[in-house]
């Protein structure tokens, strides 16, 4: 790892300035992904701006929404009473990620900014457009069993690895950002990007912009929710595929639905068409299967990930089934 300057500002503006003005500077919070990438020479910042002393770790239970500070730890959020009561789907998704130790380090903001786990991205001796634009995509014709089935481009077929983000996109969260040009709010669904021709950019954050909080609006999804994660071992593994499902059911009729998938695209993948199909229908296996089929329209597999075309709908059905019986 290269040497770097280390600064630890106490004021938000100083932190933002430090990163905005230095092309080789970056923020560090939990460090669980950045330190890893720095050790492997994939991230080589010359300056680290430690934001852990900024007052951004609060969880505010406001009327109508939860405001979760960007520095709130994953474990703190998952165990928070308000979060568990008002957004149980988020708590479930957080607990499905990483390990207890990592959740004690990783922050909400950092979790969203996790970079892909694509093996080609992680190997300096293999091509990767995300790591080194123009070098090619190693996964396209390579070993791509973990890769995308939606929204990919011929430049990049990597997937976003976060579990938390799948729940947040389903829950219509909003990301609060502060930057050199002031503050702005980014709907969660617009926060992460598809790779297109610029896979090196994971998100729509501008240089120097700092995530300060995430707003999660209250909804009717306090009961019939489930985060279903399918992985190759029982815990502590990235998802082959995951589904966040949230339903509002009355008299066995679905009044509202939220559905998103992880492990299938360069961003957490919201399944709006499937949600629409669910509304007004009885909460039955048939309905779930129909929604799952709609959800998978447009999916396309590569050499090693065709199983996702089948695992996807099955996992959606499983998530909806479990959510519907979660009471």
């Amino acid at each position: 790892m290269n040497q770097f300057q280390y600064v630890r500002p106490s004021k938000q503006q100083a932190a933002i300035d430090a990163v905005a003005k230095d092309p080789n500077a970056t923020f560090i919070a939990g460090g669980t992904n950045l330190v890893d990438l720095m050790k492997r020479g994939i991230a080589t910042p010359q300056k680290l701006v430690d934001i852990n002393r900024l007052p951004l770790a609060r969880i505010d239970a406001d009327p109508g929404k939860l405001r979760i500070g960007a520095l709130a730890l994953n474990s703190t959020v998952a165990d928070d009473k308000q979060v568990r009561e008002r957004q149980p789907l988020l708590a479930q998704a957080l607990n499905a990620g990483a390990s207890a130790q990592l959740r004690n380090m990783a922050t909400v903001g950092g979790n969203m900014l996790q970079r892909t786990r694509c093996s080609y991205f992680y190997d300096l001796a293999m091509p990767c457009n995300k790591r080194e634009p123009g070098s090619g995509c190693g996964a396209l014709e390579g070993i791509n069993r973990m890769h995308a089935i939606f929204g990919f481009s011929d430049k990049c077929i990597a997937v976003h690895p976060s579990d938390m983000s799948v729940a947040l996109v389903a829950l219509d969260a909003t990301v609060l950002v502060s930057g050199p040009k002031g503050e702005r709010r980014i709907p969660f669904i617009d926060f992460h990007r598809l790779p297109g021709d610029t896979p090196e950019k994971d998100t729509n954050l501008e240089k120097g912009e700092l995530i300060t909080a995430v707003d999660v609006p209250d909804g009717p999804f306090t009961k019939y929710v489930h985060y279903q994660k399918v992985r190759e071992r029982a815990s502590y593994a990235f998802a082959l595929l995951s589904v966040a499902a949230a339903l509002d059911i009355e008299n066995n009729t679905i009044k509202a639905a939220r559905l998103a998938m992880g492990g299938v695209a360069h961003k957490p993948w919201r399944l709006t068409a499937a949600e629409q199909l669910l509304v007004g229908k009885p909460a039955t296996e048939d309905t779930f299967r129909q929604a799952a089929e709609v959800a998978m329209q447009g999916a396309k597999a590569f050499k090693h990930n065709a199983y996702k075309i089948k695992l996807g709908p099955n996992t959606i059905v499983q998530a909806l089934r479990t959510a519907a019986s979660a009471a």
Partner: peptide, 24 residues
Amino acid sequence: HIDDRFGRYVTKDFADYHVPVHAD
């Protein structure tokens, strides 16, 4: 797994190469 085009492992650590954890 080796990517035969490069002759290099794509499994490089415990995130790619899974060994059993407590829950298994």
